[in-house]
Nucleic acid binder design. Structure first.
Lengths: 246, 246
DNA sequence: CGGTTCATTGAGCCACATCAAGAAGTGTGG
DNA sequence: CCACACTTCTTGATGTGGCTCAATGAACCG
């Protein structure tokens, strides 16, 4: 079930310059190397459960996970999409507030909770980076509230695709996407629906509608080709700056 | 327009133990006292505008403000309700990502941005407290996504009232509210609608419906009496622990 | 006491949900 | 390599919760 992934050197880590360790010098990195461990889980694995103990602070190295909450009657809302360099867990808290589920094979780099809290306390570079990342996450969560509260189904889908394209190009260090962009969806229709506050049927219909309008092509259910990123952005309700919506 | 509020001693400050300064010792407080200034603005004042420069880091001392974003076509979504001890501005960023508007008379305690960034960098007690508060805000924003994405209009209103009651009782240092609770709404119907992703009409109708069902009484449009906090909580979809939804 | 703003209420409609049925992949065993 | 089951996605038909448009009522204020 759980692969015991060999520990790699931080220098070779794909998220070395994006994660909570981004600002660490080589000496600080040495401390992290001693304390860290990796864990790889297959798609569908529940990594944490709302209200349950969570004894590690983890960072996604590769793969994709969802952060969600489910109401008693089964309604689910995904409140965050976790991609490489995003973290799982909250320093200072021993339980998870949300469900975390791997949607693809996920490898995390993790620290025992107490250990990480000590690292945060004693390592200003980590504390500062964690604050900066948390502020970014807060902005992203607030931006998403606008999507959930005020956008139409079509705008939600377009915004989701645009934001995925942005994150994909950001992680590969490019400038903002433009022109034709191709995209692999890490999420099923159902997971997309849960992320956007829609039903699976509406999600599917809106994707079909965007295809019929020539705004996207769908080589397969999980692959999207955006002929013109700019045109899709307009559909997403991008006004002025084209700043990231998530 | 803007009152020049006399600077009070931090020891006498109503949010001394809740704000970003909560963990400071007397020596650190002395530094803050030198750098801080107060500003009081009347209801309706725009405190910050999305995309515009924001040269201060402010903390609400008294009053209530909304944090919102407006789409080009006028649709508005409030992404946060700012109450005493909540902060405005983002260290490390010179512009505001959102509109901030005072909905009652608001007094803030503020620092010039550069000054505050230095304080955060040099004062671990402030950095740690700011991180903790930001993590709390992040949880609140994510919790709100569930409300926006998956709740019915009735549940949204009930959840809003329940969360207001919780915050009111928390700020006066009580245990969680129970039994009969009375509440003053800081927001107009329109502002409530913008917060909940509803229209003003639906907001009004659902408040009327809750009244007709005996879950609330409305002595005036801005005052709510909750005869049984527990019963309203159930209406808000509270399942198990009664933990704060926001 | 008229003007203005804010809240309530009603009538009708529409975007999205729900219910239901296929279609297209995907994996498993023979 | 195919048959079958199973899951995921798509599409259609119908229902409804909340939006839109419109009017009235209530509070505030000069």
């Amino acid at each position: 079930m759980v692969k015991l992934t060999p520990v790699t050197a931080c220098d070779a880590c794909p998220i070395r310059h994006n994660a909570v360790c981004a600002d660490c010098d080589s000496q600080e990195l040495a401390m992290l190397e001693k304390a860290k461990s990796y864990r790889t889980v297959p798609p569908g694995t529940q990594i944490a459960a709302a209200g349950q103990p969570l004894e590690h602070f983890s960072t996604i190295v590769t793969g994709c996970a969802t952060l969600s909450r489910t109401l008693e009657d089964g309604r689910r809302q995904t409140v965050g999409l976790l991609l490489p360099s995003d973290y799982i867990g909250r320093p200072g808290r021993a339980t998870s507030g949300y469900d975390v589920e791997a949607v693809s094979e996920v490898t995390v780099c993790r620290f025992e909770r107490r250990t990480f809290e000590r690292l945060v306390r004693d390592t200003p570079h980590i504390a500062a980076r964690l604050l900066s990342m948390t502020l970014d996450e807060l902005d992203a969560a607030r931006d998403w509230a606008v999507v959930l509260g005020r956008m139409t189904a079509r705008e939600k889908i377009a915004t989701f695709l645009v934001s995925l394209a942005r994150r994909a190009s950001a992680s590969s260090g490019e400038a903002g996407p433009s022109g034709a962009v191709s995209l692999h969806l890490p999420l099923s229709r159902e997971a997309i629906a849960d992320h956007l506050g829609l039903t699976i049927e509406t999600t599917s219909r809106q994707i079909t509608a965007l295809r019929k309008d020539g705004l996207i092509e769908t080589p397969s259910a999980r692959d999207i080709l955006i002929p013109s990123f700019e045109r899709l952005s307009l559909e997403a309700g991008e006004d002025d700056d084209g700043g990231p919506i998530v």
